[in-house]
């Protein structure tokens, strides 16, 4: 079975959109981290800078999975590996 190029390109665009749904996970995770960070600063304002750096580090690590989704979307849209 072979499809024409526009059909494959359209399907790639849909796939790119689906891949970016991966952003939900890191969004929730980073929000939870930020919320706990705020609570920690409220409880112990003296340790503000320590809490900030730990929180940012954790958030950046949690962000990775979302970025993988973004990368897949970018590849589908701009590199077009499926269009022969």
């Amino acid at each position: 079975m072979d499809f024409n190029e526009n059909f494959v390109l359209g399907c790639s665009a849909i796939g790119a959109g689906l891949a970016v749904i991966a952003g939900i996970g890191p969004g929730v995770g980073q929000g939870i981290a930020a919320g706990h960070g705020a609570a920690a600063v409220g409880r112990n304002p003296g340790a503000r800078s320590e809490i900030m750096s730990t929180m940012l580090l954790g958030q950046a690590v949690a962000e990775t999975t979302g970025l993988y989704g973004l990368l897949v979307a970018m590849l589908l849209l701009f590199v077009k590996p499926l269009v022969g």
Binding site: L67, Y68, M74
Partner: peptide, 13 residues
């Protein structure tokens, strides 16, 4: 791999 992809994807996006 994850270390380099994180930096790359952030700046690229």
């Amino acid at each position: 791999i994850s270390l380099s992809l994180r930096l790359f994807a952030n700046v690229l996006s």
